[in-house]
Amino acid sequence: MSQYRTFTAADAVEYAKQFGGVDDPSTLVSAEEIGDGNLNLVFKIYDNQGKSRVVVKQALPYVRCVGESWPLTLDRARLEAQTLVEHYKHCPQHTVQITHYDAELAVMVMEDLSSHRIWRGELVQGVYYPEASRQLGEYLAQTLFHTSDFILHPHQKKAEVARFINPEMCEITEDLFFNDPYTDHERNKYPEALEPLVASLRHDDALRIAVAGLKHRFFANAEALLHGDIHSGSIFVADGSLKAIDAEFGYFGPIGFDVGTALGNLLINYCGLPGLLAPREAADGREQRLSDVRDVWIAFAHRFLELAEAKTTDVAMAYPGYAQAFLRKVWADTIGYCGTELIRRTVGMSHVADMKLIKDEAMRTECIRNAITLGRTLILAADHIEDVEALLARIRQAV
């Protein structure tokens, strides 16, 4: 039996030699730690020709940027690995491949994606990948449909819900998405000039009730095996390729949460671009983000309905028209969760490069203001936005 210990770079190399699946393990000679290191240790393993071959990732037992006062379950490594393994079964072209994991050491070995780039970094620099949004929609449709009641036998579905129960990581989501930004919490961080706007979130009864409903559905609706944190920093892209990574928040929840989180990060970039790029490039980039939002939803909905028509196993759910009715509910959830993502990324603690890299303080404050305003608008209007074209119109009107 293995016993948990925090890996060094040398440990990662030795582990990769044993479990990396490389034809000649003796060629693996060095490791480089990559990533922000807030939750995990991530090592890229190199051979004696200087080529990266595999990645070794180990969960830390606490949030490094906070310290041991914020402990984290090591079981999240198992949940992440098993979520990605399950998603890979249904959408291998858009899911990172996990080749080995050890639950006790909280470590996994995965394919190297050095040929790809983190999507958020590319979006911030104005680099456009025309196929990425449709590929993301495909990933969402395949993984969410194939882990849902549309295709799983009820006994299997209930067993899977139990296998992927993830209370500690879900609690983090529950706090950061639905609690902290709407209270005067010490983890919140935003420009002082926006205090009146942020304070108004705490006292908006309609908003607080809508957020409570979104949180309740996050608690209660075990619709499919979610990635749980599918933002642009958890997606690698290359020309013609997209791969989802980092699924340690995976659990069975409402389908609209994954879709809404994905769209919310595209809209964070939409709001931040005027502070990141020159005016002409920013305007073009914002139009591309709106097209991305449209393409993600259309690709997701089209493929989900196609799969439902061909593969639904439940007699009642296979009745003509039900899948369309179900997606109308998912659509409303998607818009609401999209709004909470915008607010938690700008009011709460989990800020992102789309805003942090804006150098001009006044411009950054204005971009953050627009994201908060858009988030509030979407949460309140979620039940009244009929389709994706109406959503795009509402975005243009709000920002």
Rank of each mutant, 00 (worst) to 15 (best):
R280I: 15
T334P: 01
A398W: 08
F164A: 03
L305R: 06
L226D: 00
V56G: 01
D387Q: 03
G233Y: 07
A31M: 06
V399H: 07
Y62F: 15
F145M: 08
A278M: 12
L140E: 04
Y15L: 15
D383G: 15
V352E: 00
E248F: 10
D314P: 08
S148W: 02
A31Y: 05
K215E: 11
T377L: 11
V109K: 05
A31Q: 09
G275Q: 09
A206K: 13
I151Y: 15
R78S: 12
E122P: 01
I298L: 15
L152D: 13
D24E: 12
A224Q: 07
L207H: 00
S350I: 13
Q288G: 03
D360N: 15
D239I: 10
A224R: 03
E14S: 12
A393G: 06
D24C: 03
W297V: 04
L225M: 02
A10D: 15
R78I: 05
T377H: 14
K158H: 12
D387K: 06
A106T: 07
V56K: 03
D246P: 01
E138S: 08
A393V: 12
A210Q: 12
Y322S: 11
A16N: 06
R76D: 05
S115E: 15
V211P: 00
E186W: 13
I268K: 00
F218Y: 11
D387I: 08
C91W: 02
A210Y: 07
V388N: 05
Y270P: 03
Y62L: 10
R64H: 04
V63R: 08
N265A: 00
I343R: 08
K359I: 03
E138A: 13
F43S: 03
H203Y: 13
S114M: 08
M317H: 07
R5G: 05
E32K: 10
G37D: 06
D360E: 13
G67P: 00
K311F: 12
A247W: 10
E341A: 04
Y270W: 06
E32Y: 04
Q125P: 04
M363L: 14
N38F: 11
R53N: 06
H87K: 09
I395M: 08
E111S: 13
Y129W: 14
L207C: 05
G375Q: 07
D258W: 04
V330L: 10
D314I: 08
T95E: 02
V63G: 01
Q397C: 14
A262N: 07
M363D: 07
Q397T: 08
V96E: 03
I335K: 01
E160W: 14
A244N: 09
E14A: 15
H155F: 12
F164N: 07
M363P: 00
A141V: 04
Q82L: 15
D175V: 04
R396C: 12
N40G: 02
P191M: 12
L201I: 10
L194N: 04
T365I: 02
G20C: 09
A103F: 02
M349L: 14
T8L: 13
R294T: 05
